[in-house]
């Protein structure tokens, strides 16, 4: 076992993990932050997307020990109490989800895009979301939501 410490959504946490413990397991099972989902567990679907030191990463393809000392944010850290984050609000407004399973990863990926590109085009959004799979929506409303959410975040 190894001890690991990191900041998650602004809170300092630490725990004992095995070397093989995935970051997503540490988030979901040790920290009970179950908003981050495991979809494919093979680095393809992006449901496990979180931010590490401000950049989007797939938490199923990182070891918890690799996040030692890092600043991690998850979907739980976005809303301000009952007030949705602008990207969450855009997904609600534009019906950017159906079953909702991919949504946490979509939103974490989208907020990373919005930080780099305050006014992404449809092409920009579709290219960026290559690592996030949705099996319900056909992406159309997700793309609209991300474009609107990025503008709202940077308004």
């Amino acid at each position: 076992m190894a001890s690991v410490s990191m900041t998650i959504n602004g809170k300092q946490v630490s725990g004992e993990v095995e070397g093989r413990t995935l970051l997503v397991e540490f988030l979901r099972e040790h920290q009970r932050l179950t908003g981050t989902h495991v979809g494919c567990d093979t680095t393809q679907c992006g449901a496990c997307t979180i931010h590490m030191n401000g950049e989007a990463v797939k938490s199923c393809t990182m070891l918890a020990v690799q996040a030692e000392g890092a600043d991690v944010s998850t979907i739980e850290g976005l809303a301000n109490g009952d007030e949705l984050h602008p990207m969450q609000e855009a997904f609600r407004e534009h019906h950017g989800l159906q079953c909702g399973f991919c949504t946490p990863g979509m939103i974490m990926s989208a907020t990373a895009l919005a930080k780099r590109n305050p006014s992404p085009s449809e092409d920009d959004v579709r290219h960026w979301l290559e690592g996030n799979l949705c099996r319900c929506t056909g992406y159309h409303n997700i793309v609209k939501a991300v474009m609107a959410g990025a503008r709202a975040m940077n308004a």
């Binding site: 680095t43 950049e55 797939k58 990926s109 895009l113 960026w128 690592g131």
Partner: peptide
């Protein structure tokens, strides 16, 4: 290469 999250790691 891959996707944005893969390119970040």
């Amino acid at each position: 290469i891959g996707d944005p999250m893969v390119r970040n790691r």
